[in-house]
Structures are given as C-alpha cells and as structure tokens.
C-alpha cells in the first residue's frame, strides 16, 4: 500500500514515502512541505491517486506549522479518499534515540519545551509543555533528541540528560522512521485529525 508521511512540528519539514525516498527541508512549512511531498511522489513515478494512506505529525510543535501540516494532509486525503493517520511528533522524534530511556524535546518558544520521556516504547512522562528547568528528575540519565534539547543544552545537561552534538541528525525527525510509525498507526476520520497544541490559545 502506498503511504506517505510528513511532519512540520519543528522549523524543518520531514517527509517520507514508505519504501521510497525521504526528505528533510529547512524553511517554513508553507513553502517547503508541498514541494517536498510532491517531489517524493513524482520521483517514485506515482500519482496522488495511488496514495492510500497519509501519516501526519500532529505535534506538539509550532501551532501555525502544525496546522499547515494537518490542512495539507486533509487536502491531499480528500482528493482521492486516502486515509489519514495522525502521528505524535515527540514519539516520531524518539524513534531516533538508541537508549533505554529517550527524552524527546521540541522547542516551544517563550523559554519552554514540549517534551516526553519514553521507556520501553511507552511515554512514562508527557507529552508536556513547560520550562526545561521543571522537567522531572526521572529525565536524568536519559538520552535526548530534538531542537529543544539543543536550545536548552545547558539546563538539560545540568539535570543529567545526555544530548548528542548540535548537528547530529538525531535532532530531526527522520522520514523512514516516520513512515514506519505511520504504517503501524490507526486511521481516523479526517475531522478527528487535529494538532496536539498542549497550550491554550493566547487571548491577551
């Protein structure tokens, strides 16, 4: 079954075609996402009519960027009735971590992070949003990934978290891992595919 998956939770766009290519592009989702996914379909000699399932990262992450991801997924799915499979962006990031305990950390701006701690394939803490200083002690000794762990390296390392070097690919969601998650994920009705914001709208 032809499946594509993409994620826009961080300032990079990740896209992958199951059993095919993958792409990571720098830049805003509104400019990079459609060229990326359309390119993958084209390079594989496929058309959108062939795509039967679409996996989409629903965050947490940048609100606007997540909405672009979800709206794009819905538009693509509507075209020929492909099914939609929402994916946790933190769990997708955690796929990169080769350790017993993995801490996925996405920069949430305003001095905060979106984070989740995974152990044996399950979230034992989070998804959560808050200042990195307030991550629980249980994160000590975990191996971290994500742009949030890079930005708050000092705070997290001070709390006993291990963080790969800044440029390490572990900090970005990878296309093949995203596709693997999507292949195992459940399809849900389009209206139920919504970003996981974790924060209330700012009404000030």
């Amino acid at each position: 079954m032809t499946l594509i998956a993409f994620d826009t939770s961080m300032p990079t766009v990740t896209a992958g075609l199951a059993g095919g290519g993958s792409a990571i592009r720098e830049g805003p989702a509104q400019r990079e996402l459609m060229p990326a996914v359309n390119g993958l379909i084209g390079e594989a000699g496929l058309g959108w009519r062939d795509v039967k399932a679409i996996g989409v990262g629903v965050g947490p992450g940048s609100f606007t960027s997540l909405r672009i991801g979800v709206a794009t997924a819905r538009g693509l799915a509507q075209a020929y009735g492909a099914e939609l499979r929402p994916l946790s962006s933190l769990w997708a990031l955690a796929q990169n971590i080769d350790a017993a305990r993995g801490l996925a950390v996405i920069d949430a701006r305003r001095g905060e992070v979106f984070a989740a701690l995974y152990e044996g394939g399950e979230a034992v803490f989070g998804p959560w949003v808050g200042p990195p200083e307030q991550l629980p002690e249980a994160c000590s000794g975990a191996l971290a990934a994500g742009d949030g762990s890079v930005r708050f390296r000092d705070v997290l390392e001070g709390a006993g978290v291990e963080i790969p070097p800044d440029g390490d690919p572990v900090h970005r969601i990878q296309g093949p891992a995203l596709c693997a998650l999507a292949e195992r994920a459940r399809a849900v009705p389009a209206e139920a595919v919504l970003p996981e914001y974790l924060r209330s709208p700012d009404v000030g």
Binding site: Q30, N38, R67
Partner: peptide
Amino acid sequence: LIGALLVGVAEAKALAAARG
C-alpha cells in the same frame, strides 16, 4: 490574519495539487 490564511492556503494547495 496570517495563521488563519495559511489554513486555507495549505488545504487549497494540497487539494489542487493532488487533483492536478
């Protein structure tokens, strides 16, 4: 509103592209 506009633009682009 930029965030509001982007919802419509993203969905319109995706639907248009998928259907050519």
